[in-house]
Design a protein around this nucleic acid. Structure first.
Lengths: 239, 239
DNA sequence: TTTTGTGAACTAGTTCACAGCT
DNA sequence: AGCTGTGAACTAGTTCACAAAA
């Protein structure tokens, strides 16, 4: 692939089919699936590094972690020539590169909306937030809770102060752990506070502006999907 | 998006193209994406039903809930002629059908492995388990916890008794909320107890037999993926 | 008419296979 | 030799567009 062409200052209102670079920032468009795998690769590399392994080939990675070698190479190749032909990838080096690509070299701060059971559990979950993240705040609107801390010491603030704390603490990601009934309201507040990335645990669809990234973990959908599998797998359609 | 389980090397029992299923054994293969959407459709129908709406067309559903009309029709058509041409779908009727298809008319019982913060939060999360599920048990190996209950009253059992309780209570789904270090061990116990569907919150890959359905919610991957989008500035909405 | 159900067309994503570099 | 990076081939998934039915 020839990369030089995109620097011609083309207005690029409409991206021709097959064009690899988005109009917006001239960066190649990376699919959700690829993004998720980058995170998986980083975890694998951490494991290899801990074992003292210095270099790894895509084939080795694929066999050990049940992935596809060509896919690993293709995913990584989006970000330049990260490997060395005839050798493979330097574990330490690739780790560092991936951490940079994923933006994990910035110690991103996270706020959790809702200091209920789930919010508090997420705030304190050890090993949930690996390297690169810090839970800086919990937010709630229940007066009894405001001013308290989670067991691990995350302070609970009034949701009214979201914008102020967000600016002060430089919070970049919000996690939604509030009941469905207030989820959209909370999203609107998050957006108004200038946060651009949201991880949502409430069920159902939420509206966000174009430039805010929303990821939803819908536990109901997950569970119902498992139920579907059981209903079919059993062959016990009628019982 | 949720990083599903890589079901690598599944020979994918091929149904001849165009062949319609006739018996229970020859069920059409339904994709993960379709399965998840069925759950979403059911939620939409519940909302419409609550508003007293009696019939709905795929177009109406699509516009209101930001879906694609053809996709709705195609998804539903897998399960027979659920609609009426010129009319649309009868809300109540389709709801009932979907509940049956998803196996929600059986009140499935769920066990949660790990009575830590996350396990307890999941056990009591209101509105998490909508219609069709019941959290029947928590399991842990920490003696202090065994014999206690969650705040909402879910009993905590010794993980040694998993098989016994599973049989007695007819538990069909297990949720993994234990630390990574013991996740594989717990999976093995779940499998040995005869449970065929697992929702996993621990990071990393787990091995399960062919006939056990595993869905993983990897919070680290989700968060790192959000970090990636922030690092690039590619905004985009969720699905 | 309206709206479903569905082949066809299209799009996205994965895997193959090999040219080219070390 | 070994292994990456990548076009080509393939597979899965989505959307279109229209015939068939109410």
């Amino acid at each position: 692939m020839i990369v030089g062409q995109q620097s011609r200052g083309r207005p690029a209102t409409r991206v021709p089919a097959g064009e690899k670079f988005s109009a917006r920032r001239m960066l190649p468009q990376i699919s959700e699936a690829t993004t998720n795998r980058l995170s998986v690769y980083l975890r694998c590399l951490n494991e290899l590094d801990a074992e003292g392994i210095r270099t790894v080939s895509s084939k080795m990675l694929a066999e050990r972690f049940d992935l596809n070698a060509a896919q690993i190479r293709k995913d990584l190749a989006h970000f330049g020539e990260l490997g060395v032909r005839g050798v493979g990838y330097y574990v330490r080096d690739l780790k560092r590169q991936l951490r940079h690509i994923l933006g994990l070299d910035r110690r991103l701060k996270v706020a959790i909306m809702g200091a209920g059971n789930l919010g508090l559990a997420l705030a304190d979950y050890p090993g949930f937030f690996r390297e690169g993240f810090r839970i800086a705040a919990l937010f709630d609107n229940f007066h009894e809770k405001i001013g308290q801390h989670s067991r691990a010491g995350v302070p609970i603030y009034d949701i009214k102060d979201l914008r102020k704390i967000t600016v002060r603490e430089r919070i970049m990601i919000a996690v939604i752990a509030v009941p469905l009934s207030s989820a959209q309201t909370v999203v609107d507040k998050i957006v108004a506070a200038g946060i651009k990335a949201i991880l949502n645990f409430s069920p159902g669809a939420l509206r966000t502006p174009e430039d805010v990234k929303l990821k939803t973990v819908d536990l109901t959908v997950l569970l119902e999907s498992l139920s579907f599998y059981l209903a079919r797998g059993n062959g016990a359609a009628d019982a």
